[in-house]
Design a protein around this nucleic acid. Structure first.
Lengths: 193, 193
DNA sequence: CTGCGCATGTAAAAAGTTACATGATTGG
DNA sequence: CCAATCATGTAACTTTTTACATGCGCAG
């Protein structure tokens, strides 16, 4: 169901073709919220059009069709937005890898974490540059709003991740130092079966 | 593929049955990293055992089997951790809804956002309580580390979200104030209300 | 005149969800 | 003894991924 509403939401902001939507998906949604390939997007657009939630408002070169959301579509989107979120689950292979670090030997985990930190910092800086660019355009019209929201979200997300990663590094280090000292104050599980 | 490694990672920290793993999934992974139902977990455990990556180390009441990761499993997990992440995409219906807010009328978007802020703040406080509890146990053994990492991540994640939401609220407000004056840009969808 | 990007599709396979199904054990 | 929870599974369906497939239009 989410794919439908992702498409309706994108079309509510601005009309576009399947091709354009595929790109907008990749630009603003896939890193934080949802992702879909064109092979899933095209059939879903046809279904949405069949249900009268979107309409073809223009046909261009190479058989391209520009869709716009219909009034019924806007209603459906709003209903969905007002309905309770029944799924608060998240899928992210990157975060999964973070958590799995605790299964590795501490030195290896630290190495990996440091690499992640570096890449995350670089990516955050890239988004910051995008934000600066959008901001300089000074165009507060709807279409850019969407990307602006996503970009701001991304910056804050990366910042939070970086803080967490640094905290995790420090914790692993501390844990390792304690373990290295034979008689620590921490409990020794020894024969815990 | 991710499910395999999520299970291997959990078993690398501590052995457990399919039932126990289902619960650990729901506790520490599903809100931030990955989720799976028992109907997906049990068959995957059988496959992992068939591939020699995990082993049954105990059988208990009600036909329960406790699995532990094998040396081959540990190697497979490590290989995966060291391999480049080829998928940096995220799926989260909640975040999707956030982004779709820009498709709604500003006052409605603000109402919804305020509701989200309230719930997020409550959830963050709940995790903080869990963190405080884990911290008070003073038990630095591996099994708890996992949940501790996830909880810390959750707190920072919620904090970042809350900051973003407040920023978004302020921005919508400003945008609305500007639109209220002469600076009419963008389309105005029927003020028929 | 050719290669790249635009533009749309379908099919098969894998992954994930929901529903159905069963039985054991334990606490009240 | 009854309800809740433990514990495992399969089947049908939906969603998502990967691969295959085709053709137009433009810039160099």
């Amino acid at each position: 169901m989410s794919l439908r509403f992702a498409l309706l939401g994108l079309l509510a902001v601005e009309p576009g073709s399947g091709y354009a939507l595929t790109q907008r998906f990749a630009q603003s949604l896939e890193k934080y919220a949802w992702h879909a390939n064109h092979s899933q997007i095209y059939p879903e657009l046809n279904k949405l059009a069949g249900d009268g939630l979107i309409e073809v408002i223009a046909e261009g070169a190479r058989g391209s069709r520009t869709y716009a959301i219909s009034d019924a579509g806007r209603d459906a989107l709003q209903d969905w937005m007002l309905s309770p979120t029944r799924d608060s689950r998240v899928r992210s292979e990157e975060i999964l890898r973070m958590f799995m670090l605790s299964a590795l030997e501490p030195p290896l985990a630290q190495d990996l974490l440091r690499g992640y930190v570096e890449r995350a910092a670089r990516q955050r800086d890239e988004i910051r540059a995008i934000v600066a660019h959008i901001e300089s355009e000074e165009d507060a019209s709807s279409p850019t709003q969407f990307g602006r929201f996503a970009a701001e979200f991304g910056v804050r997300q990366y910042d939070a991740f970086l803080e967490w990663a640094r905290w995790a590094l420090a914790r692993i280090e501390r844990f390792q130092a304690e373990a290295g000292q034979g008689s620590g104050r921490g409990k020794r599980p020894s024969t815990t079966q």
